[in-house]
Simulated assay, not measured.
Amino acid sequence: MSYNNIFSKEEKGITTITINRPNKLNALNRETIKELHEAFDEANHDKKTKVIILIGSGEKAFVAGADISEFANFSVKEGANLASKGQELLFDFIENLSTPVIAAVNGFALGGGLELAMACHFRVASDNAKMGLPEVSLGVIPGYGGTQRLPQLIGKGRAMELIMTAGMIDAHTALNYGLVNHVTTQDELLPLCEKIASKIMRNSPVAIKSAIKAINANFKDGVDGYQVEIKQFGKCFGTLDFKEGTTAFLEKRQANFPGK
C-alpha cells in the first residue's frame, strides 16, 4: 500500500513504520493518523511481521506534536470528536495491538508525538530526544491519552508537574523516570530496536499476544487484571506454541514456534 506521509517496510520479521513529514517535524494531521492506522493494521495482519518499530524521519523529530492548523478553530463538539476519533483510530489501537510495537524516539516527541510513543508497548530513545506535553501552553490539555498514560508510566506527581509546566525532559531524565527503557546514540537507535526485536521474535507470538492483553488489563477501569491473566494463561495450554515450547525445553533444543 502506498502512503503520502509515511513509509512501511517489512524485513526479516520486522516492519518499520516511518512517519515522513520532515518539513512539519513529522507533526500528526488527520491524514497521517489515518495512514498510520492502516499501516499498523496491515502489519498486524501480515504473518511475516513479528515486531513493529515506529520512528520519525530525519534527525530532528520523532513527532513534534499535532498539526495545530487543523484544529485551531474547532468548536467544543469538534474538539471532543477529534480526541475520541484519534484515540480509537490510532492510540488505543496501537496499545491493544497483538504485535509488539517499539517506539524509536529520535529528537522531539512533544504533545501528540509523546502520546503516540506512549501508546506503543515500550520506548527506546536517542540521546538527543526531548519529550513533553506542552498542550496547556496552548490553552488545551493532552487529548490523545496523555493525561492517562503519562501517570501510569512515571507516576502521578511527575506527570502533574510535566503537564502543568508544559515542560520538556531530556532522554536521560526520561530513562530515570521510566518513560523510556533505553537511551542510545542516534546512529544506534534503530539497530538497538532491531536487536531487541530479534530477542522478542525468538519467543511465542501467541504467548506475547496473551501477555499484552493481560498487562493492558491492569490499566483498564472495571477490569480484573488477575482474572484476565488466569484466562490468558489457560488459553496458552491449548496452543501449538505451548506444545512446541515445552517439548523443546524437555528435549533441550531451541523452540521453533508455529505461531498457533
Rank of each mutant, 00 (worst) to 15 (best):
A211N: 12
A214V: 03
T147I: 15
T147Q: 13
L190T: 03
S210D: 03
F219T: 15
Q232A: 08
A217S: 14
G225W: 02
P191D: 00
I154Y: 02
D221I: 10
I169P: 00
E188V: 02
S210Q: 08
G167N: 09
K220S: 09
I200F: 01
K231A: 15
R202K: 09
G143Y: 03
F233R: 11
F233P: 01
I230G: 02
R158I: 10
S198L: 05
P191K: 00
T185Y: 08
N216L: 09
G145A: 09
M168F: 10
K156H: 11
G222Y: 09
D221F: 08
T165L: 06
E229R: 08
A214L: 09
I215E: 04
D187M: 12
L189Y: 04
P191M: 00
I169D: 07
L153F: 08
A211S: 14
Y144T: 02
V223R: 09
Q148G: 07
D187H: 12
D224L: 03
N216R: 14
T173Y: 04
G234E: 13
I215M: 14
A207T: 00
M164N: 04
M164F: 03
T147H: 11
I215F: 14
V223P: 06
L153H: 07
P205G: 03
K213V: 08
T165P: 02
V183S: 03
K235H: 13
A174F: 07
Y144W: 12
E161I: 03
S204V: 01
L190V: 05
A174D: 05
G155R: 08
S198M: 08
I169N: 08
R158E: 10
E194N: 10
H172N: 15
M168P: 00
T173N: 08
K199C: 04
G157M: 05
I230A: 14
I208F: 05
H172W: 09
P205K: 01
S198T: 12
I230E: 12
M164I: 03
V228K: 01
I200P: 00
G225P: 00
L192S: 05
Q232K: 11
K209Q: 10
E194G: 10
H182I: 14
L162I: 12
D170S: 12
R158D: 09
G222P: 12
C193Y: 01
Y177C: 13
P151F: 05
L153Y: 06
D170P: 10
M160N: 05
V206N: 01
D224N: 13
A159S: 15
A214Q: 04
S210K: 09
P205V: 00
I154S: 01
C193M: 06
H182T: 14
K156S: 13
T185W: 06
L190Y: 00
T185S: 15
V180L: 11
A166E: 08
K231H: 12
G222I: 05
D224Y: 02
G225Y: 02
A197H: 02
V206Q: 01
D224M: 03
Y226V: 06
I212N: 05
L179K: 10
A217Y: 00
I154V: 15
N203M: 07
K156L: 14
K231F: 11
K231Y: 11
L179Y: 05
A211E: 10
I169M: 10
V206K: 01
N203I: 02
A214D: 01
N181M: 13
M201D: 01
